[in-house]
Amino acid sequence: MQDLGIDVLFKGTNFLRLLQGLWVSVEISLISVVISILLGLLVGILMTFKNPVLRAVLKVYLEIVRIMPQMVLLFIVYFGTTRVFGWDLSAETSAIFVFCFWGTAEMGDLVRGSIKSISKIQFESSFALGMNKIQTYRYVILPQTIRRLIPLSINLITRMIKTTSLVMMIGIVEVLKVAQQIIEANRKASPNAAFGVFAVVFLLYFLVCWPISRLSVYLEKRWAL
């Protein structure tokens, strides 16, 4: 398979390096997802409050996340804030900060949606059975919300992993960067390496994201109310 440049991957530790690069993306994603889910729960509940100031602030926040490309946010944090505030942020910290900023908004919106989708009658019928507010949330509302939320949060993981491919733009050595390095190093020996290596990177991303999104679809169907 010389001509497709797949052989490059079996030279030395190349394939292992690629996997390590992938792990960098996955690690950043997982850390960001966990933080986003926790903060998102809070933000989502805040979004259902009727306080006008709070609503306006959250609305602006959501809109920023909705229309600003994550790459722009990465640049602002990594190049912009370090310049303005003079602090020293590593690329990894900047990336995690940006993905949490983005993920919290997404998660918050999902939480708000799930709470809103539970009809008022559910509250009323629980009260009619003599439950208090905490019991109503504990036994009736939250179980329904969480069943709806888990598949959506799992889906957020795949979106996070896909988005982390951007971090190479602020100099983090993840799978794409490693791929470029491998191709560059073998330019002479294997001029077609770009095909094999990028095809494998494509496949690696797919192999990581696909099972997770299948799981999300499966749970969504299984837990459909």
């Binding site: 497709l4 440049g5 795949t158 896909k162 988005t163 491919s165 951007l166 190479m168 794409l176 791929a179 191709i183 001029p191 077609n192 770009a194 095909f195 290596v197 990028f198 095809a199 990177v201 494509f202 991303y205 797919f206 994201c209 696909w210 999104s213």
Partner: peptide, 20 residues
């Protein structure tokens, strides 16, 4: 295409396809 990033898709189209 739903389970891979656009960046990787573009790299494949732009850098890999010319090789074949």
């Amino acid at each position: 295409f739903r389970n891979t990033p656009l960046l990787v898709q573009l790299f494949f189209l732009y850098f890999a396809l010319p090789k074949i």
